[in-house]
Design a protein around this nucleic acid. Structure first.
Lengths: 216, 216
DNA sequence: TAGATTGTTAATCGATTAACAATC
DNA sequence: TAGATTGTTAATCGATTAACAATC
């Protein structure tokens, strides 16, 4: 099947996307604080970035600023939310409701940007059938049915490492389009299913490098 | 106070350190599987990296390979562990024992690389004074005392955003040298205290960019 | 020795930053 | 208009990759 040529976007750097997400949160805060406009310099200062970088990041997507003024906070926020797909609600499946799953469920910040955990999956009989803050808990065998019924496109995997690939396969079969994996396992997905592994221990391991270096 | 010039290391890229950590885990696995030697190409293949990059990463720290052979798995593993400071035990303080703190406490992988949670701090009276898997839970007012008494150098912050800066200040005052922050808050530490913020929601936000793009 | 693979230099690529004409 | 700040081009910087002599 021939892919539609992406004649638009000139290949956006991953780091640009991550920064857009950071800018968006900052703009949300500025808007709350009643700030009307902000310059690339002011925005850059808050994250020790370069103002040219801020402008370049934005320029990938359009011209959002006003020369001599800067950017209108509300306007830019809305643009970035649209670009990042944060102007809509995403139904999310949370798979695994142990300590980590529970922590992620209660994590403020997910919900804030339009991610709504629409269903929880866990095979612990003590949890299945319950509702947590009016979110239903299903056994994983219901995964396909519920993912489809609820229009879920994103899954958060928070099961033990041993179970991670199996539930991911089920998720893929159910038609999920993106997986955010917190299990310490290297997962495989077909390449049309976006996969992001979050490694909770790598940061600790790199920290110790600097501590050990200091001691050398 | 004049800093001792770092005449040794020629400025190691952060990404190199992160990859060393990944290599180390891979080598641990290879060793378990009874593999004796591994080439830079084989190592690179496992992570879709370039073999020259693997060799270059290692070359920052010494010559660990044997021409025509590759690297001895056990030997290289030991070298990397030493470089990363994983050849010793680090006493870690876990601050905040809610869902997230509890998840991090039970997270396999931290302990595996020599990080031992030596004390938990939480101000919930229901938790204080208990022991969790023989790790004591203290109120945060005991922080200074226990950090010193237990030689703790690293802290994991897993408290609500509002409390994060206050506990971090306490940790700094207690002489902690590195902070791994999971609270959704922008923290400040003096520059001799290493700080790493883990942003649990940024990955989700960037994922939705790609999903939204696909839909455009 | 022949084959394999390292360590390292040079080439390439991509991302960051400086600079500035355009323009509000 | 004068001052400020954008959008964008060109310069710089740093990281990745190719290539290969060294050598096991």
């Amino acid at each position: 099947m021939p892919r539609r040529p992406s004649y638009r976007l000139p290949k956006i750097p991953e780091m640009t996307i991550r920064r857009l997400s950071v800018y968006t949160r900052c703009l949300l805060q500025l808007e709350e604080d009643g700030v009307k406009t902000v310059s690339s310099q002011e925005l850059a200062d808050r994250f020790t970035l370069n103002s040219a970088q801020v402008r370049k990041d934005l320029a990938y997507f359009g011209e959002f600023g006003v020369r001599g003024i800067g950017y209108y906070v509300s306007g830019l926020k809305a643009e970035l939310q649209r670009i990042l797909g944060l102007d809509r609600e995403w139904a999310v499946a949370l798979v695994g409701f142990g300590n980590l799953g529970s922590a992620l469920f209660h994590y403020r910040g997910f919900g804030r940007q339009g991610f709504r955990i629409a269903a929880i999956f866990d095979d612990d009989p003590a949890k299945v059938g319950r509702e947590v803050d009016s979110t239903p808990v299903f056994p994983s065998r219901d995964l396909g049915r519920e993912v489809k019924a609820r229009g879920i496109q994103i899954a958060i995997v928070a099961v033990p490492a041993e179970a991670a690939q199996a539930v991911t396969d089920q998720l893929v079969a159910a038609g999920i389009r993106a997986v955010l994996n917190f299990a310490p396992a290297r997962l495989k997905t077909p390449k049309d299913v976006r996969l992001k592994n979050v490694d909770l221990s790598i940061e600790l391991e790199t920290l110790s490098f600097y501590l050990a270096k200091g001691a050398r």
